[in-house]
Every structure is written in structure tokens, then in C-alpha cells.
């Protein structure tokens, strides 16, 4: 059980905003899963249900002109960065008006207008890209920062080592966030990961790293505020290890039979939206107001889903647009 919350000080209206955002994320992913069941969402969906405090607590602290790089499990991050829920659902349904025009889908969701430079279908690949985005910011003497979120499985890939070393050597403005949900697909990450974990690895590069309960939105929020201030102050990269738990399977198609139901049930009691609601109730927010947050989120997403569903697929000619300028298939250069 989570620790006693009654003695904590916090900004009620800020937490209320985060509560709303977490509900919007959850509602969007529940809609995506329904779409998957109805075979309307076509490709793989990697839900972050149960992990919303990382999206809300980390990404909620970024400015619009800050840059975000995410993973295959990136719906929450993208929505938190300010992407439009209808454009996101259009993308998940592969429709015109999707953030990527229906050409990327869930695993490549991106919205450059809000600084969301892409989810990535290759585990760990975003880490070096994020370092490079921060490198460009430094070269251009801009004051924005980059945030790169990846899973616990990604720390066993080479780009983790190469990207962290790069960011440290060049003193780049990037916040790395390891969103640790305990699993890499069907494998318990701990069973395949040597050493004391992600933060210890980061510290080996001289990068200041913190560890936080990723289901505790207040703790995530506070840690990220502190780390981001250091990054913005020119201190170079910082690292956050946020521990959470994936309540669904790896994908929408994964029933996750590899873990006991009791484990999931126990972890469900610690899921972040309920914990935020408890804090808010303790601060005097009434149950009706909290229910209204959920209802508003669900209404927004239901309307967005309906509009996305009504939108057409892109025309087939989109297959040949935005491949390249030189030697483009549009020039008949097949």
C-alpha cells in the first residue's frame, strides 16, 4: 500500500490539472483498445495504462517549445505534450488528419508543432536522436531543452550507452527519463539486466540521477521540476528513473499470462490516478468534482474517436509522398 498521504503539502489546482490530464490519457488509451478490439485500430498498440503519472509529471513540466522524444508506448507522452486528441486518434485509426497523416500509426506518432519529435518503433533508438536534438539546441544557442523517455528494456541497448555518454561529453540540455514498468515485452527486465539499475548506470557517466516512485504524481512532478531547472541552467544532462507498473499486457493483444493475477491486482491498488484522487479528496475536493474530471475526459475522447472514425483513409498516392525529394517515387523513379 502507498504511504500515508495526509501530511503532504501540494498545490491543489496543479494536482487537479494533472488528474484531468491523466484521465485524458487513460480515456484515450481505453478508446484505442476498444478500437483494436473492433479492428478499427489496425496495428500494434502499446498502452501505458497505470503509467500515466510519468507522462503527466514529466511531460507536463515541459514548455511547448521544448522537445520530446518518446517510445512505442508514447500516447500519454504525446497527449501530455499538447497534441490534439482527435488528431492522435485519427493517427491511430490511420486516417486523414492524423498527426502524421495516417502514415505512422501508434508507434510513430509525432507532432512537431508541439515539439513532439516522435515515438519510435526501435527500442532505445530515440536516445541518440534526443542527444542530437539537444546538440542542435546547443549549437544554435537556444534556451529550450530536450526530454527523452524510454523503457527499462532500452537500457540494455547500445544507444543508451552511446547517447548518455554523448550528452554528458557535450554537456547537452537533455533530461533522460527511464519509465520502468518492470517488463520488457513478456520478460521481467530485472531478469535480463545486470547491476544496480538505470540510475546507477547514468551516474557512471557522471550524470546526476534521481529515482522516484513513478506512480506518485507529486513525487514525479517535484523531481522533474528540480532536474529540469538544472538542465535549463546549463548543467548538462540529468536522469530520472521512475518506477511504475504496466497494468495491461505489452500490447493490446497480450493477455500477459506470464505474471500472476494477484501481482496485477496488488499493483492496481497503487495506480496513479487513484492515488492522485485520494490526495485531492484529502485536500477537500469532493467526489463529484473528481468524477467530473473523468467524465469530461471520457466525453472529449468519445467525441474525438467518433470524428476520427468518420474521417477517411488517406488516398493511396500518399504512399509516394514525403519519401524523398531527389529520386522520389513521384518522379517515376521506382
Amino acid at each position: 500500500m502507498p504511504p500515508d498521504q495526509s501530511s503532504r503539502n501540494f498545490d491543489v489546482s496543479r494536482l487537479r490539472e494533472q488528474h484531468r490530464l491523466m484521465w485524458r490519457i487513460r480515456a484515450l488509451e481505453q478508446a484505442a483498445l476498444r478500437g483494436l478490439a473492433e479492428k478499427v485500430v489496425l496495428g500494434a498498440i502499446h498502452p501505458s495504462i497505470g503509467q500515466e503519472a510519468v507522462a503527466a509529471g514529466v511531460v507536463g513540466n515541459l514548455r511547448r517549445d521544448d522537445i520530446l522524444l518518446s517510445t512505442h508506448r508514447g500516447h500519454g507522452h504525446t497527449l501530455a505534450k499538447g497534441a490534439d486528441s482527435e488528431a492522435m486518434l485519427r493517427e491511430l485509426l490511420g486516417r486523414v488528419g492524423g498527426t502524421c497523416g495516417g502514415k505512422g500509426g501508434s508507434m510513430h506518432i509525432a507532432d512537431f508543432q508541439v515539439g513532439m519529435l516522435g515515438a519510435n518503433g526501435v527500442v532505445g533508438a530515440n536516445i541518440v536522436i534526443a542527444a542530437g536534438a539537444a546538440h542542435a539546441i546547443k549549437l544554435r544557442r537556444e534556451d529550450r531543452v530536450v526530454c527523452c523517455i524510454f523503457g527499462d528494456g532500452a537500457i540494455n541497448r547500445g544507444p543508451f550507452l552511446e547517447g548518455l555518454n554523448w550528452a554528458a561529453v557535450f554537456g547537452l540540455p537533455v533530461l533522460f527519463v527511464c519509465e520502468d514498468n518492470g517488463f520488457a515485452a513478456t520478460t521481467r527486465t530485472a531478469s535480463m539486466t545486470a547491476g544496480a539499475g538505470p540510475a546507477t548506470r547514468a551516474r557512471a557517466f557522471g550524470i546526476v540521477a534521481e529515482e522516484v516512485d513513478g506512480n506518485d504524481i507529486l513525487a514525479v512532478d517535484a523531481a522533474v521540476q528540480g532536474l529540469l531547472a538544472q538542465v535549463r541552467g546549463g548543467g548538462g544532462p540529468r536522469f530520472l528513473h521512475a518506477s511504475t507498473y504496466r497494468l495491461t499486457g505489452h500490447t493490446g493483444a497480450d493477455a500477459a499470462p506470464y505474471r500472476p493475477a494477484e501481482e496485477v491486482a496488488a499493483r492496481r491498488l497503487e495506480e496513479p490516478i487513484g492515488r492522485a484522487a485520494e490526495l485531492l479528496r484529502g485536500a477537500g475536493v469532493d467526489a463529484a468534482a473528481l468524477a467530473a474530471d473523468q467524465a469530461a475526459a471520457e466525453a472529449e475522447i468519445a467525441a474525438a474517436y467518433e470524428a476520427a472514425f468518420a474521417a477517411p483513409y488517406p488516398e493511396a498516392a500518399e504512399a509516394f509522398r514525403d519519401v524523398q525529394d531527389v529520386g522520389s517515387p513521384l518522379q517515376g523513379a521506382f
Partner: peptide, 19 residues
């Protein structure tokens, strides 16, 4: 550094950012 994946990957990020 001798980090070919980072040299190229960072360049992808830096190129997406307009350099």
C-alpha cells in the same frame, strides 16, 4: 566518441532540428 550509432543518431536529431 567512437560511437557510430550516436554519431549518426545524434545527427538525425540535429537534422530534424534544422541543422
Amino acid at each position: 566518441p567512437i560511437s557510430e550509432a550516436a554519431i549518426l543518431g545524434a545527427s538525425v536529431g540535429a537534422a530534424l532540428m534544422g541543422t
